[in-house]
């Protein structure tokens, strides 16, 4: 009862032999060693395991790895530059004290990354609504919402600048 599967994670192709019952999060963490994605509840409520599948935030505990062939999976390990320079979203979390123990953080980052890509013009209230998808036990959420909102604003400003430049 094992299966050969091909997974593309953070742009890299992997051939794996797994039991079909292994969840995506277990395969990412334990078969591929990508331990940045965390496990918090294994029933789809806490969101600590959130990754992007084809760009959309997904609970990796509610998907079997065998279901994810031919998809593009992205984890928290893909956000920073190769030299360790934080992405704008990660830097925003640091600037706003948007993490304490850091356990929910990768899930929050991937949730926000997926959401902002889909809704770059999201309001702070819409961001709060989406952050409500994941649990954090340390921060009281306020600084997470602020971090995501600040990142969204900066991205919008940068976009405006590019548009402004190309118009002139």
């Amino acid at each position: 009862m094992i299966q050969l599967i091909e997974l593309t994670v953070n742009g890299e192709r992997h051939d794996l032999v797994v039991e079909p019952r292994r969840t995506l999060v277990d395969v990412l963490r334990h078969d591929l060693g990508l331990t940045g994605t965390h496990v918090g509840c294994e029933h789809g409520v806490c969101g600590a395991c959130t990754v992007l599948v084809d760009g959309a935030p997904v609970r990796a505990c509610l998907v079997f790895a065998v279901q994810c062939e031919k998809t593009d999976i992205r984890t928290v390990e893909s956000l920073a530059d190769a030299d360790g320079t934080l992405s704008d979203l990660q830097q925003s979390f640091a600037d706003h004290h948007g993490l304490q123990c850091g356990f929910c953080t990768p899930g929050m980052l991937m949730l926000a990354e997926g959401f902002l890509a889909e809704e770059p013009d999201a309001t702070k209230e819409e961001i709060r609504d989406v952050v409500a998808a994941n649990l954090c036990r340390c921060t009281g959420y306020q600084t997470i919402v602020e971090a995501v909102d600040a990142c969204a604003r900066r991205r919008r400003a940068a976009r405006q600048e590019v548009l402004g430049r190309s118009a002139s």
Binding site: V53, A56, V58, V63, A132
Partner: peptide, 9 residues
């Protein structure tokens, strides 16, 4: 319906 990641999938 649940939250965004649930609605997405």
């Amino acid at each position: 319906v649940g939250h965004l990641p649930i609605r997405t999938r």
